[in-house]
Nucleic acid binder design. Structure first.
Lengths: 343, 343
DNA sequence: ACCTAAGTTTTACGCGCGTTAAATACTCAG
DNA sequence: CTGAGTATTTAACGCGCGTAAAACTTAGGT
């Protein structure tokens, strides 16, 4: 099939019998040429192996067809999944996604944005760490390249934010836990690396108040992204000291819950809502592994696909309009309760 | 600090008082200019915001400083970790890594290589699926761009392979299991998506023979990358039917083991080498989560860092020499036994 | 057959940088 | 201070493609 290699558009114009400017139009938008012309070009493409030189194509453009996708940590399955969804949305819209992980390091997030600058992306989809110190950088970046935030919000920054409504989702699971047993205490990290954690704590407090229960919050020492380890060590400490105010624990996220489940197992504490269950543990995020914990983890499922698609389509809207949004948009999706065995 | 933006090298030459060809040399290799010149340039760089246009730089090059890194599935923490190690090695050597995931889909692997072609990478580090059908594509690609394989081998293909010695590692854990209890049976997928699985089965057979035991292999139906699910369903089926020949199971990889542990828990089967343990389960890979399973998983740790660094440095050696290896190289690292509670 | 609007070809320039060759400037040893 | 060797400057071309303007061709309606 694909036979002779053609080195450049000039040559391809020669062998295909189509002028170079027309070819240029075609490669930038196949629909911009007459149907018959398009057919001739595509016919020629089956006979000659030619694809435009990416670098030459982008050299003169001030904006490319690239879209930067930056997530805090690809090693976390949550981000690898939502990152994948975002990638697919970009591809479907004819853009080239460039997926970058900040590897759990805010410094790397800045480096990623710097690196993206050189690639002149048309736009960026960013799941930020949300540290206050990054705000200025990100807003400066947003001045040059439109940025849509997802997963974690930075109040008022960038063009838009798409995420989960933590107040709804936490209330949902708090309500369920209260209804089905003792009201939950809340287990989280002391200095969370993600702003959603703060929302969830707040949501927990409000929800408990609304249901007329006394809230109890336990904050684990430890920094970084080793959530399971922190959940296991600090959660284990709490359980072994019998320090929990109720027999039900809502963890700020699934990875903490996974660590805590592991510690409970080690301590011989039977977790679960069933008979013989001494402790109930619930999480948040529906981590890919939460289905396979022992017992399987009751949690909140975020709507990955909806968040990813909404974030992407919001960015495309900005790119198509070639102007920024008149007003910053915020879209929150509802979480769904996933009832399993742990609570 | 960084003040006036400079649009191109011409302008930067004007403001810095250095000629453009010298600047060009500097940006391609800072050591290639005289020390005093380098200082002047770097002094100017603190006053003016200028960085060469990536696209213009690469337009004329037949090879760039990019290195493609392709892994089968970034959603698998094993690959996200080893991918990260590879990235770091590339950066340390002054190359720009481009990390691509094939999302569990061999078709995507081909697409990734096609996409990389356009980026004219200097070399590619590939963790392949290893299907026979991909071999031709990959070898064709290797003709144009030097490829070093890691994690999964394709016999005789590409410049080199770096991975774990499955025969050593499986023998290590088989020996341990035999020594400490009943000899293991082997649990794997019927049609594994990774060639290491075949090596491990073979290694299990040989090792059992060497130790004078009868091997038993159980193969789970199911395709794709949902290893935990397959391990849980098929492993659960085996356990509930009491079909296992011995009370010790060696799983082809940790994710299968995680699924099986989950199923055992559901069936009320106590797993572990301790008192009361009715079943022992072991894995292979030291998956990041294997420390937090219930019970924690005894497994084999691969030397991620060594594999990644060796693969990268082998590629750099080829790139520096500007010639292919006289002979294909194969480097295997030993796995280490990680003794935890499950076996 | 004629007209018009839309698509195509021809011609030509520019983008930012790599690179070469010849001329010039610098550095350091003797 | 001088000369040899190295580094830098000057001048100029090319890479592959986007794009603009003008001339030309085509499609579709009357």
């Amino acid at each position: 099939m694909e036979q002779k290699k053609v080195r450049n558009m000039e040559q391809f114009a020669a062998v295909s019998g189509i002028s170079r400017p027309t070819l240029s139009k075609y490669f930038n938008d196949p629909d911009s040429v007459r149907r018959s012309t398009r057919d001739r070009i595509e016919q020629a493409l089956t006979q000659y192996d030619y694809r435009p030189n990416v670098y030459a194509v982008n050299q003169n453009r001030s904006k490319t067809k690239n879209i930067g996708v930056v997530v805090p940590n690809l090693a976390d399955p949550f981000f690898s999944e939502i990152g994948r969804e975002v990638e697919l949305a970009c591809l479907a819209a004819g853009y080239s996604p460039i997926l970058l992980s900040s590897h759990g390091n805010p410094e790397q997030e800045r480096a990623n944005l710097e690196a993206l600058r050189l690639l002149k992306p048309a736009g960026v989809l960013l799941a930020p760490f949300g540290r206050a110190s990054d705000r200025a950088d990100i807003e400066a970046f947003n001045k040059d390249v439109p940025v849509v935030l997802f997963d974690a919000n930075i109040e008022g920054a960038c063009e838009a934010f798409v995420g989960t409504n933590n107040f709804q989702s936490v209330d949902l699971i708090v309500e369920y836990l209260c209804r089905s047993g003792e009201p939950p205490c809340f287990f989280e990290m002391k200095s969370p690396s993600n702003p959603n954690a703060n929302k969830r704590r707040q949501a927990y407090l409000e929800s408990m108040q609304r249901h007329g229960h006394t809230p109890h919050i336990y904050q684990a020492e430890g920094e970084g992204w080793k959530f399971e380890e922190i959940g296991s060590i600090e959660g284990g400490r709490l359980m072994s000291k019998n320090a929990l105010a109720t027999n039900t624990v809502l963890c700020s996220n699934d990875r903490l819950a996974i660590g805590m489940l592991s510690a409970a197992y080690g301590l011989g504490i039977v977790v679960g809502h069933g008979e013989g269950g001494a402790l109930r543990i619930a999480g948040h995020d529906d981590h890919p592994f939460s289905r396979y914990t022992c017992p399987s983890l009751t949690t909140i499922a975020q709507d990955y696909a909806a968040i990813a698609n909404r974030a992407a389509s919001t960015l495309f809207r900005i790119l198509d309009a070639e102007t920024r949004l008149s007003e910053r948009e915020e879209t929150l999706y509802e979480g769904k309760l996933v009832m399993r065995d742990s609570a």
